[in-house]
Amino acid sequence: MSDETTQAPCPCECAATGWPRRDILTAAIALLMAPTATVLAAGEPGAGAPPARAPNPKALRPQPGDRFAYLSGENKDKPVMAADIKIGDPPRLAYPVDPATETIRSGSRVNQVLLIRTDPSALTPATAPRAAEGIVAYSAICTHNGCPITLLDGDNRSVVCTCHGSRFDLADNGAVLTGPATRRLAGLPVAVADGFVTVAGAFTGALGAATSQ
């Protein structure tokens, strides 16, 4: 097994990162599930839990200001520049990178992000505020069976998981267009700074496929 899974600690590591209310609730529940993990910030639900241990930076969810690095191919580990992404290009699969330490956050598979550029005028109101110059970012992990999504559809705004054919509209909040997936892809707010695509917020929904029944 690769260290992607063995190094991934509990999901509550994201709790100290100033996430919105919905994610704090997720973190609180996560804390219930794994009471020995990272302490939450003072004043947040769950304060007073056992002492903190240092979060694994590789497994932290994307942090505001993070850049991106390609996760495969000849540009693997190299930075994703905004100018590299054009309308009609296949999705760029990437991991977030801490720009200070250059740590690639590949310690958890749900950190895999896909980036495409769309026509900014096509973006719905739910999507436009978290796009930058038409570039949108989403969790790359299909919500059906968990395959990374790699194919752009002919409309230049939706993507197809080539494992089972689920389609998601990236101009409309990751909505499911075709099953078998039933849950939308979580978005990730992005910005462009010094030519780099950067993270501008937290994932907007649940990540990955169901892990049990």
Binding site: R109, G208, T211
Partner: peptide, 14 residues
């Protein structure tokens, strides 16, 4: 017996 897969888990056929 029940099993929980890791977060982000994928398999082609479940």
């Amino acid at each position: 017996y029940k099993r929980d897969f890791p977060e982000g888990f994928s398999a082609f056929h479940y």
